[in-house]
């Protein structure tokens, strides 16, 4: 029976889709049967980051509305056997995400997979609510800045009151903090918040710290999850985060951000 994990944040553009792809790929690399689902109806970013946008025929909304079978909409990743993507629709709106429809799809996936990762849209409206509603665990993606931390706090409140687990009075959704776009130099200058301060405010366990890294943009342009770029510090950070998500105890490393050094610039090689 699959674990359902929502990747959420409240604030937009903090790295949810990047993290969904990276964690999904990381779990598949560790031999876990994983499906990643795009809940950002109307934008459809996940299939682009996964490099499968040209292979989309049917989508999540088609399945919810009974226009296609789940099997027809699922796209198998070409690099990782264990990974599938359920893309969303670019033309429908969020109202197409009904609770019953989402539940039906998740139920069908639950028996087949080990992990179901839901990429939430920004905000706290319907799409975000549907993405978190059925979750067992939540990866709360946060940037080291005040507004992002506050939105994460808001989302944690919603998880503890508006999720299925909360409504049914079951064990609460298990939250994990994933700090992304972390830049120690800017933290030292006081331009960004310190890890300790963020942890103190949110008081949830830390899943990982992903440094600011050009490898992320490069990977998304190539349509590859950054976890497959084993040389990048962002990729390494996601590998670590995946191990922790699987329950392993690993020390949290603060990897330096990658910038192009003088040598590399002279040699013209990307960092």
């Amino acid at each position: 029976m699959a674990k359902i994990i929502v990747v959420t944040s409240g604030k937009g553009g903090v790295g949810k889709t990047t993290s969904t792809a990276a964690i999904g790929a990381g779990l598949a690399m560790r031999g876990k049967k994983t499906v990643i689902i795009d809940f950002d109806v109307g934008l459809r970013n996940l299939d682009m980051i996964m490099g499968c946008e040209r292979r989309v025929v049917f989508d999540f909304i088609n399945v919810i509305q009974g226009d296609a079978k789940l099997k027809q909409a699922l796209i198998k990743d070409r690099r990782l056997d264990n990974l599938s993507i359920l893309p969303t629709s670019q033309t429908r709106d969020k109202d197409a995400l009904t609770r019953d429809g989402v539940e039906k799809v998740l139920k069908e996936l639950r028996d087949e997979y080990d992990y179901i990762i839901c990429d939430s849209p920004a905000g706290i409206e319907r799409g975000a609510h549907m993405a978190m509603y059925f979750a067992d665990e939540a990866v709360v993606v946060t940037n080291p800045e005040v507004s992002s931390v506050r939105d994460s706090d808001r989302v944690l409140g919603l998880l503890s009151s508006k999720s299925r687990r909360a409504e049914k009075g079951e064990e609460p959704v298990k939250p994990h903090l994933l700090l992304t776009r972390y830049d120690p130099a800017r933290v030292a200058k006081g331009e960004m918040m310190k890890v300790e301060d963020i942890l103190e405010i949110l008081s949830i366990p830390l899943l990982g710290i992903v440094p600011e890294s050009p490898a992320v943009l490069k990977a998304s342009n190539l349509g590859t999850p950054v976890t497959l770029d084993a040389n990048s510090n962002a990729g390494k950070a996601y590998v670590d985060a995946v191990s922790r998500l699987m329950g392993e105890q690993i020390e949290v490393r603060v990897l330096p951000p990658e910038r192009r050094g003088l040598f590399q610039r002279l040699l013209g090689r990307p960092a």
Binding site: R150, D151, D153, R154, L156, G157, I201, S203
Partner: peptide
């Protein structure tokens, strides 16, 4: 913890919070 956006109302007596209270709560 009382999170941003949450509102707790003790409408008969005292309110005791043994956790942190977020900004916006």
């Amino acid at each position: 913890p009382v999170r941003s956006g949450q509102r707790i109302f003790a409408d008969r007596g005292d309110l005791v919070v043994v956790a942190s209270v977020g900004s916006g709560a």
